[in-house]
Computed example of a mutant assay.
Amino acid sequence: MFAVAAGGYLTTRSLLRATHVSRLQSDFVSAVSHEFRTPLTAIRHLSQLLARGRVSSDERRAAFYELLVHESDRLHRLDRGPVELRPTRSRRAGLQLRVGGPGAVPARDRRGLST
Rank of each mutant, 00 (worst) to 15 (best):
R74K: 15
L85G: 10
L40R: 03
Q48W: 07
F36C: 05
E71T: 00
S56V: 02
F64I: 01
R80C: 07
L46C: 09
L78A: 12
R74M: 13
E71W: 03
P39G: 03
E59D: 13
A63Y: 01
R52P: 00
R44I: 00
H76S: 13
R74V: 02
H70A: 11
A51V: 08
T38L: 05
S57G: 07
R74I: 02
S72R: 11
F64V: 02
L49R: 07
R52N: 09
F64N: 01
L50A: 04
L49Q: 10
T41M: 11
R86P: 07
R52G: 02
R60Y: 00
V69E: 15
V69D: 14
V55Y: 00
R54E: 13
D79H: 11
S90P: 08
L40G: 03
A63F: 00
R37C: 01
G53F: 09
F64D: 00
E71L: 04
R61N: 06
P87W: 12
E66G: 13
F36D: 01
D79W: 09
R91G: 13
H70T: 08
R52I: 00
S47W: 01
D73N: 14
R61Y: 04
T88R: 12
A51I: 11
R54P: 00
S57M: 11
H45M: 06
R54H: 10
E71A: 06
S56M: 08
E84W: 11
